[in-house]
Computed example of a mutant assay.
Amino acid sequence: MARVVDITDKLSFEGNPSLKIKGKKLEVNADAPTMLKVMGLMGSDDPGINEILTTYNMLFPDKSKEEIEKLKLDFNDLIVVVHEAIDLITGETNAQGEQ
C-alpha cells in the first residue's frame, strides 16, 4: 500500500479576507487557484484593461461586486481596489485595518 500523510493540521481554513470601504466589508476570493491565475494576469509591469477586468471578476464574488458598483468609483479608484485586494491576499499590504 502507498504511504499516506495527513497534512490537515498544517493547513489554514480561515476563509476569505475582506476589504473595508466606506464601512462595507467586501469579501475577496483568496483561494490558491484564483490567486495563481491573478498572478499570471497581473504579473506584467503594466497590465491592460482586459487583465484588470478579468482580475476584478475573479477576485470579488458577486455580492462584493454589487457593493463596489454602488460606490460608483472612477477607474483609477477601481484599480486601487483591485491592487489592494491582491496585496491583502499576498500579505504585501502596509495598511492598518481591522482584524
Rank of each mutant, 00 (worst) to 15 (best):
Y56S: 09
G40T: 05
M58T: 01
E69A: 08
K70E: 14
D62P: 01
G40L: 03
I68N: 03
G40W: 14
H83M: 10
T54I: 12
T34L: 10
D62R: 06
N76A: 15
D45F: 09
D46T: 13
A32W: 01
N76S: 15
I52D: 00
E51D: 05
T54H: 05
D45A: 11
K65V: 08
P33Q: 15
L36G: 14
D46I: 10
S44E: 10
G48M: 07
E69P: 00
K63Q: 10
E51Y: 06
K63V: 00
P33D: 15
Y56L: 06
F75L: 14
L78I: 11
L36P: 03
K63C: 01
F75I: 15
L78A: 08
T54C: 07
K65D: 04
Y56H: 05
F75W: 12
L78Y: 06
G43W: 11
I52V: 09
L71E: 13
L36R: 12
F75K: 10
E51S: 06
I68V: 12
D46W: 11
N57Y: 03
L73Y: 06
P61K: 05
H83P: 02
P47Y: 11
S64N: 01
L78E: 12
L36F: 09
T54Q: 04
L41K: 01
I52F: 13
I49F: 13
I68A: 10
I68P: 00
E51N: 05
P61G: 03
E84L: 09
M39F: 12
T55Q: 01
V81E: 09
M39W: 06
S64M: 05
M35I: 00
T34K: 08
E67W: 13
L53I: 11
S64G: 05
G43C: 13
M58L: 14
M58E: 02
M58Q: 00
E66F: 15
P33W: 10
N57V: 01
K63W: 08
S44Q: 09
E66Y: 12
V80D: 14
M35E: 00
N50V: 04
A32K: 06
K65A: 11
D46Y: 07
V38I: 14
L78R: 09
G48W: 04
D62N: 08
L36H: 12
M42A: 10
Y56N: 01
L53N: 01
I49R: 07
A32F: 08
M39Y: 04
L73W: 05
E69V: 14
K65E: 06
D74N: 15
L41S: 02
D62S: 09
D45M: 11
K70I: 09
N50A: 12
M58D: 00
T34C: 04
I52W: 03
V38C: 11
T54N: 08
P61Q: 06
K65Q: 05
M35D: 00
V81D: 12
